[in-house]
Simulated assay, not measured.
Amino acid sequence: MVKVGISSCLVGHKVRFDGGHKASDFCQNNLGKFVEYVPLCPEMGIGLPAPRPSIRLEENEAGETRAVITSTGEDITNRLSQYASDRKDLFKGLSGYVLCAKSPSCGLERVRLYTPGEKANRKAGVGVFAQRLRELEPAMPMEEDGRLNDPHLRENFVTRLFVYAEWKSLPQPLAKKDILAFHTRHKLLLLAHNQSMYRALGKQLGELDSMDENFTNNYILEVMQALSKPASKSNHTNVLQHVQGYFKQQLSTVEREALAQVILDYRQGVEPLSAPMSLLKHYLKMYPKPYLLGQSYFQPYPQALGLRYAL
């Protein structure tokens, strides 16, 4: 089972500052059917109660971001950061992480950053726990709960999650053939997300003579960076038209024209991505193509999630 870290409040644990939770419907009732969650709450983990005094991020005169208990001024930055550091072995077993937005411990972006002693703030901070988590696992897919309400960001995160889980499942130590097979399987997916990085990664592997841990770490980091931006309609269209070419000898003129029209309808926003995908997968069953059958692009995550119906 794919293991995913998650802020405890997002799975209904009453650990928030006000004693409540922030349960995520998507995480609990959709994604939760296909992954095993590892819930953590940094504030509770360092011994703070629920409910508890509020915490905020402050930027001191040296430009450092600190997590401070508002009512007492106590600085708990190091404790929160150390809580993450102490769990680095746990994080190595995770394939992704869902974090609570706006949290001074778990927020990934736009957390309110205050001037000490004042109410003045700007949305420019990163939660202390989240920052340390990024440092420990830079390639691991991470997302905030609020951003998962956007269908494109949701689909993008889940795609990255299952690609990274596949990477983590590769036999260790990694052999060149394993990386080449992994890269080949995800070629069309990379092409749909980032054409320039798709070409750069292919060039790196083509020129690869020897492989070490530094190369593999950089490779998967670049793969995840390439996939981090949601694929555009234009890029998807290019890939769909490329795949269409594999069937030009088998399809009749009417079938080719119908497929081309469905792809164009997707490009123009008339049909969701699932429409041309379903038709291509139908033809793939009728006329199997070994290369295409091995491509993650057609099913990068469990189909039951139905994420492409909203794209």
Rank of each mutant, 00 (worst) to 15 (best):
K3V: 11
S7E: 03
V11I: 15
K14W: 05
V15A: 03
R16Q: 07
N30H: 14
G32N: 02
E36C: 08
P42A: 07
M44D: 03
L48M: 15
L48G: 06
P49F: 12
P53G: 09
S54D: 13
I55F: 14
L57K: 03
G63I: 11
S71V: 14
E74W: 08
I76K: 10
I76F: 13
T77A: 10
T77P: 00
R79Q: 12
F91R: 01
L94K: 03
S95A: 15
S95W: 04
S95K: 08
V98D: 02
L108D: 07
R110F: 06
V111W: 06
V111F: 05
P116Y: 12
A120G: 13
V126D: 09
G127D: 06
G127R: 02
V128K: 01
R134Y: 07
P138D: 06
M140W: 04
E143F: 13
E144V: 14
E144D: 11
L148D: 06
E155C: 08
T159F: 01
A165K: 07
W167K: 00
Q172L: 13
P173W: 00
A181H: 10
H183G: 03
R185C: 07
L188N: 06
L188D: 06
L188Q: 05
L189R: 01
K203E: 15
K203I: 15
G206H: 03
E207L: 15
D209Y: 05
D212G: 13
N214K: 13
F215D: 01
N218Y: 00
I220S: 02
V223S: 01
Q225H: 15
L227V: 04
K229N: 12
A231Q: 07
K233A: 13
S234E: 14
Q241S: 12
V243S: 00
G245Y: 04
G245E: 03
G245Q: 05
Y246D: 09
Y246Q: 07
F247W: 01
K248N: 10
Q249A: 13
L251D: 04
L251H: 01
S252N: 07
V254W: 00
V254P: 02
A258W: 10
Q261S: 15
Y266F: 14
G269W: 01
M277P: 02
S278L: 09
L279R: 14
Y283H: 10
K285I: 08
M286D: 11
M286V: 10
P290T: 13
Y291V: 15
L292T: 11
F298A: 02
F298D: 00
F298P: 03
P300R: 07
Y301F: 15
Y301T: 05
G306L: 10
L307M: 05
L311E: 05
L311P: 05
